[in-house]
Nucleic acid binder design. Structure first.
Lengths: 122, 122
DNA sequence: TGGCATTGACTACGCTTGTAATCGGTGGAA
DNA sequence: TTCCACCGATTACAAGCGTAGTCAATGCCA
């Protein structure tokens, strides 16, 4: 389960997180069209995700229905933590400081974050 | 220059961001010992980073001195943005919300961020 | 002045990733 | 009944990556 999900695999996971269970065909149709993948490519990725136990499939007639095993929450948390550990010594504030310095925070971002923090303390 | 810096390469970059210029030998000595790399491995990574134009070297006697060409700032910004785009639809607040929900923010984090935001508005 | 140690360059090699074609089984149309 | 379309499984293959050994040049010590 700890096997890392690659970038291409992640695109497939997003589809299944959005809606599941789905057949391979359904997934192929829903995956980001910018990728320009053939159905075969999607099937390969599904196979690899199965091997990594990131998804599971149940037989339905002569095809399979796929569904996620790892929660999006957990994946996202893992990736976020990885980045913060790798680049900011595990602390979150430096990331905010960094983005702020580079003017990557919109006024809306700032307002939203303030509201969040206020809630946290309540 | 747009070539992505891999994980192992990043470990080498960290050394050079911390102190430069350095010889290959110096870099090998300073790189995170947890990696357990041989000197040769570090040299290979230096070579690849040169090819990617992420670093440069100048001759010094019969060896080279290596120094970064890309700023840590820029690398970090790129990686942060990638994560936020990929997982949070390009918006920052959802990342904060996510971490908050999972109790991944310490009281200190929160205090620091609040202080930062206050400064931003000042 | 001849051999050794050091240094960067080149080569190696198995693993993962991205992308896809091909194969083998099977249920359904004709 | 026969054959085809469709499905999952298997195989392919080039690029990138992690890790490191080998080679060729050169400066230094004996």
């Amino acid at each position: 389960m700890a096997e890392r999900i690659s970038d291409a695999e992640h695109a497939v996971m997003e589809v299944l997180w959005d809606e599941a269970p789905l057949t391979a065909q359904d997934v192929a149709e829903r995956v980001d069209p910018d990728r320009g993948w053939s159905t075969n490519t999607v099937k390969t990725l599904l196979g690899r995700l199965l091997a990594k136990e990131a998804i599971a499939h149940e037989e339905q007639g002569r095809r399979y229905l796929y569904r996620p095993l790892v929660a999006r929450e957990d994946y996202v948390a893992g990736e976020s933590r990885r980045l913060i550990d790798r680049l900011f010594g595990g602390r979150f504030a430096p990331l905010v400081a960094h983005l702020a310095e580079r003017d990557e925070l919109t006024a809306q971002d700032i307002a939203e974050i303030e509201a969040l923090l206020k809630d946290l303390k309540a």
